[in-house]
Simulated assay, not measured.
Amino acid sequence: MTAAQADLPTDLHAQFLEMPEGLRLDTPGVADGASIWRIARDSKVLDLNSSYSYLLWCRDFAATSAVARDADGQVAGFVTGYVRPDRPHTLVVWQLAVDHGHRGRGLAGALVDGLVAKAAAGRELTTLETTITPDNGASERVFTSFARRHGASVERTVLFDAGVFPQDDGGHEPEVLYTIGPLPRV
Rank of each mutant, 00 (worst) to 15 (best):
P166I: 00
G29Q: 14
A162M: 02
R149E: 06
P88R: 15
D113A: 12
D135E: 14
S65Q: 04
V45Y: 03
A152T: 08
R141C: 09
F160H: 02
F165H: 09
H172K: 09
Q74M: 03
F160Q: 01
L96K: 00
Y54C: 06
D86F: 07
Y178W: 09
D161I: 13
L46Q: 01
S153Y: 03
D113G: 11
E129S: 01
V92E: 15
A97V: 02
L46K: 05
V45H: 04
R156Y: 11
D161R: 14
D113P: 09
L115R: 02
V176N: 13
H100D: 13
S35P: 09
H13T: 10
V93H: 01
A31E: 12
D86P: 00
S51Y: 02
V142G: 04
W94K: 12
E173D: 10
A34C: 03
L55T: 04
R87P: 10
V176G: 12
D32E: 04
L12D: 14
A62M: 06
A40C: 12
V142M: 06
A117S: 06
G22H: 13
T2D: 11
P88H: 12
L96I: 05
L115W: 04
D7W: 03
Y178Q: 08
H13D: 14
A31I: 01
W94M: 07
D42Y: 07
T179S: 14
T133C: 01
L183I: 06
D32V: 00
L183Q: 15
D42S: 13
P9C: 11
V116Y: 05
F61L: 14
G122R: 07
P134F: 02
G106W: 02
L25I: 04
T2W: 09
R185Y: 04
L183K: 13
Q74L: 07
A34V: 12
T133A: 12
D11C: 09
C58P: 09
W57H: 11
A3M: 10
E140S: 11
F61A: 14
Y54T: 06
D135Y: 13
V98E: 00
E18A: 11
G163Y: 00
